[in-house]
Computed example of a mutant assay.
Amino acid sequence: MTTTPEQKLLSLGLVLPPAPMPLAQYRPARLVGNTLYLSGQIPRNQDGSFVLGRLGKDTSVDEGYAAARNVGLQLLSVAKSMLGDLSRIDAVAKVTGMVNAEPDFLDHAKVVNGCSDLLIDVLGDTGYHARSAVGMGSLPFGVVVEIEAIIAVKV
């Protein structure tokens, strides 16, 4: 018996948040052929406020990891809102993580692992992906991390 991603979320005690509404002039996702492009998502607290901070200054790697995991749930929420069912995901092709960091911060990959680990935990082999994890001088609203993804969809 195959476990669906939605069942896996439940077994992990995770709940997808509502898909966030765009904060500017863009769409949260765009399906082109069998490729789903997910716009960058930023971490939110349960009350909807943003998770703010800067790695290497006022935010630990563990806090950054948790924020990236939060973003992973949001990416899945947007994907589900577009596809109706996470089982339609054929593969997470690429993840790009942007970390709000001081110039001497070196653990960008450890932060973005929060999102990568979540995708793999929920989707299994389908969640493994190519990835970039880079530092930024700033991010919108002063958030800790912003992550976007490209997903191959089953035809």
Rank of each mutant, 00 (worst) to 15 (best):
D107R: 11
E102Q: 15
V92K: 01
L10P: 01
R44I: 08
N34C: 03
L119N: 14
G142K: 00
M21P: 06
C115S: 12
H108I: 01
L76Q: 00
L38D: 12
G124Y: 02
G114R: 08
A130R: 13
G64I: 02
Q7Y: 00
N100D: 03
L10N: 13
G137Q: 11
N113G: 11
T2Y: 11
N100W: 12
D117N: 15
V51I: 12
V61H: 02
N45L: 13
H129A: 06
V61M: 06
D104I: 06
A93P: 00
I42G: 05
A152W: 12
Y26Q: 07
L83T: 00
Q46N: 11
V144H: 02
G135L: 00
R27G: 07
T2D: 08
A130I: 06
L83K: 07
Y37M: 08
A133P: 07
M82K: 09
L139G: 01
V61G: 07
L12D: 10
R69H: 04
S39P: 00
L139T: 00
P5Y: 02
Y37H: 04
S11W: 00
A109K: 15
L86C: 03
E6Q: 04
K57T: 07
S49P: 02
V143R: 06
L36P: 01
T4I: 10
I147M: 05
G142D: 02
R54E: 06
M98W: 14
V92W: 05
D62L: 03
L55K: 04
F141Q: 08
G40Q: 14
T3Q: 08
N113F: 15
I120N: 11
I150S: 15
D85G: 00
L123S: 14
N100Y: 12
N45R: 11
N34F: 13
G72Y: 08
F105R: 14
S11Y: 00
Q7E: 10
K94M: 14
G56Y: 03
D85L: 06
M98A: 09
N45H: 12
L86S: 01
T126R: 03
D62P: 09
N70C: 03
T3F: 13
T96K: 04
T4Y: 09
V51A: 06
A66S: 10
G142E: 02
A29Q: 13
G124F: 05
Q41Y: 09
V143A: 07
V155C: 07
E63L: 05
V51W: 11
P18T: 09
L10V: 08
M98F: 10
R44E: 09
L123D: 15
L52I: 10
K80R: 03
G53T: 13
V134W: 02
M136H: 07
N45G: 01
D90C: 07
L38N: 05
T59M: 13
P5I: 07
L12C: 06
K94Y: 05
I150E: 15
N113Q: 13
L12Q: 10
A68Q: 10
K57S: 10
A68M: 14
E63S: 09
R44V: 04
A67N: 05
P5M: 06
